[in-house]
Design a protein around this nucleic acid. Structure first.
Lengths: 245, 245
DNA sequence: CCCCTTATATCCAACTCGCGTCTTAGCTAT
DNA sequence: ATAGCTAAGACGCGAGTTGGATATAAGGGG
């Protein structure tokens, strides 16, 4: 019911704080595979709040900067990572998610190949890897556990555990009907490598012939005729990802 | 490559404008069905920019207000609508999406039953309906056309046409594996009504026995034993939506 | 009581998917 | 050179799913 209100009522309701703006940031889930397991790149917070805890790399959105550009900048500045698959995940805006002040963050998912992941890790001491253990099957959703290299459970800062959980959920959901899976693989790859990626993300073994058929029928795979080298058994054919038609 | 930079370089790069905050709003795609066609509720802008054009209802996010709460408030204040299915869609943050100032908006999708849609429309003169014509098949995505009651094409303000297009894409994608379809139906409904909703959203006719089977196997439908009334032919059984197990 | 319309139930063919098995091909050890 | 190992790639079968046609049921209206 929309109706005019009296000036008195307007003033009684008026609170200057209502017109203060939340701060706006982007946070990145830098996801890759490490030894066949999903892993994220984290920064260890030096200062309060949540000092000592691990957090997702992020940064404020500039006043003249598009959200996607801000995410790309954080990817460059904080990770020195090559331009990778970058997609907006969700926007988190609970009032007390940051105790310092009201901060709304737009979460992005960035996918790195295993090579890029280890290279970024080696080159950037500020970043540490966190293995992501997903306790739920399929696309049930729910919390995930992030483990340090030593195997201890990491309690992430702010609501970042929730963000990582959503990233895993989204990735599982999109994996077999979209092209995201290829963002985790190098330019040339075998069907086995592709299947390994899918199994790592889905957390479940897949049937080999069925997986082959499905992937080949999708029309995403371009056979190169070349074979992998360095195997002590029959080498597999190398494929290239053919961008969506 | 992270490395220390000189103070001079820092100062050269420093721009106070970088620390200004974008304004943050929520915009709602209030979607319902009108005569078997998807339709959205729009406000006609009285002022510049985009004066005279139709826009999505929206509002600023209060400094002490969670995003979901802001969306719920806009739903109440601008539409007087009953609490409906409300889900975050995407955050739009292009730099020049609003010529007045930098505004980042979190778009929400709200689903109304046909009864709620017409009731809100009748009760709130500020809102006008816009038929949504989706020219692409399946989940291809792309622009949509919004038509006035008279059948003219409406050019929506800002990037709101893009937001509506994304809402339709999201809805089509989720329709048959999630429970969103029921948000467009009253408490009791027949299988034919459910199929009509799916066909309206998907924009394509569906096979009746296959649809029946799939829906009944999902376990979402609770038979009531009651029959619809007022038909001049065989009445269909009324079902109720049983919330997700 | 018959007819009209739409709901609901059956049935069948095409397709997909999981899964076991067979063949192929490179390397390695003898 | 050759047999044997391993994993790639191909084949085939049975179960389950889906599209689509058809038959039966049930209410109102003549």
């Amino acid at each position: 019911m929309i109706q005019a209100e009296s000036e008195a009522a307007f003033l009684a309701r008026y609170d200057p704080a209502d017109y203060a703006r939340p701060a706006l940031t982007v946070d990145l889930v830098l996801l890759g595979l490490q030894g066949g397991q999903p892993a994220v790149l984290l920064v260890k917070r030096a200062e309060h709040p949540h000092a000592g805890r691990h957090a997702l790399p992020g940064g404020f959105v500039g006043i003249g900067e598009a959200l996607d550009d801000a995410a790309g900048r954080v990817l460059r500045e904080k990770a020195g990572a090559p331009p990778a698959h970058l997609e907006q995940l969700y926007t988190f805006g609970a009032v007390n998610r940051d105790p310092r002040m009201r901060i709304v963050t737009v979460a992005y998912l960035a996918l790195l190949t295993e090579a890029a992941f280890t290279e970024v890790l080696a080159r950037t001491p500020a970043l540490q890897p966190g293995r992501v253990a997903v306790p739920w099957a399929g696309e049930a959703g729910g919390p995930v556990t992030v483990l340090s290299a030593g195997g201890e459970v990491l309690t992430l800062a702010f609501d970042h555990a929730e963000i990582v959980a959503l990233a895993m959920l989204r990735l599982r959901g999109k994996l077999d009907y979209s092209e995201v899976g290829f963002a985790l693989l190098p330019d040339l790859f075998t069907l086995r490598q592709l299947q390994d990626v899918h199994e790592a993300i889905l957390g479940t073994p897949l049937n080999k012939p069925a997986f082959r058929r499905r992937m080949l029928d999708r029309g995403w795979l371009e056979p190169t005729g070349r074979l992998e080298t360095g195997t002590s058994y029959r080498p597999a054919e190398l494929f290239r990802f053919r961008k969506g038609d």
